[in-house]
Amino acid sequence: MTGTMPRWMGPLAMIAAAVVVLPIAATVARLDWSRAPELLTTPAAIGALTLSLATAAMSTGLCLLLGLPLGYALATWRSRLKPAVRALILAPLVLPPVVGGLALLYAFGRRGLVGEALEDAGISLAFTTAAVVLAQTFVAMPFMVLATESALGARAGHHEALAGTLGGSRTRTLWQITVPALRPALITGTVLAFARALGEFGATLTFAGSMPGVTRTLPLEIYLQRETDADAAVALAVLLVAVAVTVVALAYRPLAARPTDGAGR
């Protein structure tokens, strides 16, 4: 823990909190509590929530499976190209949602770079749940890669080196030394990736389409409901925020707060 915060930072911190909290509080204030139970239990709402949780879980799994190796590779890679490659991998964070969707379309669409070959092989991603998972994985991956890379970068690697001299294989060292040490970072990455996947909207809409039960996740359902029933949109939005906040609150702890062997920042 650093020392006591200078006094002048207090008001700035409060403004920062207000910028984030006020719009969410205003949304909750718009919620029509008497109609909420009915609005949240419509088949459309339950279907969208179920699809959102399932796809976000799948894409988070993919991010963990693929993002951990990529973060590891970036951390250990010695090259002048590294900053450029890292910046490229972070691109989904800054791409406007629609552009992300178009980019996926150009790659995996029926006439896309890879999509056309897949189509010829009889695999069509168009308008499938798999397309939703792909869109969410695309936008959520940077969180996992960054979390892994920065945590690994902060480790000196002595334990791994020692394990190596004792005859441990690289894989065994990974599972028994590195992964346990990275646990806090991996949890952070997983939680952030899940939250990002849950909120994914633009890429899904542009790339996967919007069909109840197949591709219409909760954010897409909110966008559509707003056309006819603003109360329903608000109720669903509050539900989405509640799910995300709960997940983050339960799983996320600041890295430094955990007793670790230097796996934190």
């Binding site: 379309l105 669409g109 029926r110 006439r111 168009a126 308008f127 809409l205 542009t206 389409g209 919007s210 069909m211 109840p212 591709t215 219409r216 897409l220 966008y223 559509l224 056309e227």
Partner: peptide
Amino acid sequence: SSQENSVTDVVGKVASGQ
């Protein structure tokens, strides 16, 4: 296969070949 939010989204899906 999809129920889009706007008519322009429908045009986009057909124009892109999806």
